[in-house]
Amino acid sequence: MKVIFLKDVKGKGKKGEIKNVADGYARNFLFKQGLAIEATPANLKALE
């Protein structure tokens, strides 16, 4: 799953980066902790 990092995550990505991560890791950790959001077209446009 492609995500946009909202904060730096050690070993995974830095704020503003778009990367592929495992679906479960994204849903169960990154999204719940507020560290990333899904890289949807609307979210990508908002990032610009």
Rank of each mutant, 00 (worst) to 15 (best):
M1H: 05
M1V: 14
M1D: 04
V3F: 01
V3I: 10
I4T: 01
F5D: 00
F5L: 08
F5A: 00
F5W: 03
L6Y: 01
L6H: 01
L6T: 08
K7E: 11
K7I: 11
D8W: 07
V9M: 06
V9D: 02
K10N: 12
G11V: 01
G13Y: 12
K15T: 09
K15E: 08
G16Q: 02
G16S: 05
I18H: 03
I18S: 04
I18M: 06
I18D: 01
K19N: 04
N20I: 15
N20Y: 15
N20V: 15
N20G: 09
N20S: 14
N20P: 06
N20F: 15
V21Q: 04
V21E: 03
V21R: 00
A22L: 12
D23A: 15
D23K: 14
G24N: 15
G24I: 13
Y25Q: 06
A26T: 09
A26R: 02
A26F: 14
R27F: 12
R27E: 10
N28D: 14
N28F: 12
N28I: 09
F29L: 09
L30K: 00
L30G: 00
K32L: 12
Q33V: 11
G34L: 08
G34W: 05
G34Q: 09
G34F: 09
L35F: 08
L35P: 00
A36K: 01
A36I: 09
A36Y: 01
I37P: 00
I37H: 04
E38R: 07
E38Q: 10
E38M: 10
E38A: 10
E38W: 07
A39D: 02
A39Q: 02
A39Y: 08
T40M: 03
T40S: 10
T40D: 05
P41H: 11
P41I: 10
P41A: 13
P41D: 13
P41T: 07
P41K: 09
A42G: 11
A42N: 11
A42M: 07
N43F: 06
N43H: 05
N43R: 05
N43T: 07
L44T: 06
L44R: 04
L44W: 03
K45G: 07
A46E: 11
A46W: 15
A46I: 12
A46H: 11
A46N: 12
L47Q: 09
L47R: 05
L47E: 07
E48S: 12
E48W: 08
